[in-house]
């Protein structure tokens, strides 16, 4: 009888297999999900800015919309995404250049704490201004 091994399943989302993973993997997942979110936001942002070329009324209408609570909440999500991605990016760049490698996990936690602290502060700042 011919024995055929069961080949490796390499589905595109196979990296997103969370089973049994540890904190470094979660940093990688957060990095990637925030990356995808920020790329989509970048292009959305550029499309929305085209209203400036349409004229003053179009842009000022958008500004009014952008100050609605729902959009402001999305702004907070955006800022948290930028903080998480940027702070972990600093960590990845440092360790990728061999700096602080034995303390990579500590850097990860510091990044997380700073993300939460500045995320909350920016949420307070954003919603304070609407009052």
């Amino acid at each position: 009888m011919e024995v055929k091994p069961k080949p490796v399943q390499r589905k595109p989302l196979e990296w997103f297999n969370l089973k049994g993973k540890r904190v470094g993997f979660w940093a990688y997942v957060v990095m990637r999900l925030s990356a995808v979110g920020l790329v989509l936001y970048l292009f959305l942002h550029l499309v929305i800015l085209s209203q400036l070329a349409v004229g003053p009324a179009a842009w000022d209408n958008f500004v009014a919309l952008a100050k609605s609570p729902a959009v402001l909440l999305l702004d907070v999500v955006l800022i948290i995404g930028i903080l998480a991605h940027g702070l972990n990016g600093i960590r990845l760049t440092l360790i990728g250049f061999g700096l602080g490698v034995p303390r990579q996990k500590l850097m990860l936690w510091i990044g997380l704490i700073l993300t939460l602290v500045f995320g909350v502060l920016s949420a307070l700042a954003i919603f304070a201004e609407t009052k």
Binding site: L52, V63, K67, E129
Partner: peptide
């Protein structure tokens, strides 16, 4: 002021 520039400010 208000977090976003109006048209004239931009």
């Amino acid at each position: 002021e208000g977090g976003l520039r109006d048209y004239q400010q931009v």
